[in-house]
Amino acid sequence: MNKIDIYETNLSIESTIVQYLFESNGEKKLIKAVQYSGFKTQTGLIMYNLGFGDYDFETKSISDNESSNNGDMRTVFNTVLNTVPKFFQDNPGFPIYVQGSDSSDLFEEECRISCFKNCDEACKNRNRRIRIYTYFVNKHFAALSKEYLFFGYDEQKETFVEYVPQNNYIAVLVYKKK
């Protein structure tokens, strides 16, 4: 079986925030964090938003708007994904909400100010992060579906629907099967 490269993570829990910190050893040494932040929906359901980015020790927060381009993207991505089963093991029953920081209308407005791509209609950078996650889910859907339930956010219906591989979603909701 192929060995998947991942970085060792250190768990940190504060109130409703669960963080897995690790050192990215690419072109430079950077501290990264995978953060699961608990929140309550309008219907009262508690879920956890998955965030990821560079870690700031002063503010104890992550910056998920930058791309560090550190040369170790695959190992970093595998490390992020490796935290999902760990999270579900320690937090059974709570779903994970995944949406890229580049999925909002505000992102597109700000991107157009400094972007060199000069996109005519749709911003090519928008939803780039969620597309990375959905690409992985699509590729491994049969195997992942044995352990997890997936729902995708349908923008036209403005609700989560059963996940269908190859459809475009701006957010994904993941539940661990019991």
Rank of each mutant, 00 (worst) to 15 (best):
N2V: 09
I6E: 04
Y7M: 05
E8V: 06
L11E: 10
S12M: 12
E14S: 11
E14V: 09
T16A: 13
I17M: 07
I17N: 10
V18Q: 08
Q19I: 02
F22T: 01
S24I: 01
N25A: 15
N25D: 12
L30Q: 12
I31L: 14
A33H: 01
V34H: 04
V34Y: 04
K40A: 09
Q42H: 11
M47L: 10
Y48R: 02
Y48A: 02
Y48M: 05
G51V: 03
F52P: 12
F52A: 09
G53D: 01
Y55V: 04
F57P: 12
T59K: 11
K60M: 12
K60G: 12
S61G: 10
S61Y: 05
S61I: 01
E66W: 11
S67C: 15
G71P: 15
M73C: 15
R74Q: 14
T75I: 03
T75F: 05
N78V: 04
N78M: 06
V80F: 05
L81Q: 07
T83C: 05
K86I: 04
F88Y: 00
Q89F: 02
Q89W: 02
D90I: 00
P92K: 09
G93S: 09
I96D: 02
I96C: 05
Y97V: 00
Y97T: 00
V98R: 08
Q99N: 07
Q99W: 06
S103I: 09
E110K: 08
E110M: 13
E110T: 10
S114D: 08
D120R: 10
D120F: 07
E121D: 15
A122W: 12
C123G: 01
K124N: 14
R126Y: 06
R126T: 07
N127Y: 05
R128W: 13
R129I: 04
I130S: 00
Y133C: 09
T134C: 02
T134A: 00
Y135Q: 07
V137A: 02
N138R: 01
H140V: 03
H140T: 03
F141A: 01
A142R: 11
A142F: 08
A143D: 14
A143Q: 13
K146T: 13
K146E: 12
E147I: 07
L149V: 14
L149N: 15
F150V: 00
G152T: 02
Y153H: 07
Q156T: 12
K157N: 00
E158F: 00
F160E: 07
F160T: 10
Y163F: 01
Y163E: 00
Y163T: 00
Q166V: 03
N167K: 13
N167R: 11
N167T: 10
N168K: 15
I170S: 03
I170V: 09
A171H: 06
L173C: 02
L173D: 03
L173H: 05
Y175N: 13
Y175W: 15
Y175S: 11
K176M: 04
K177N: 06
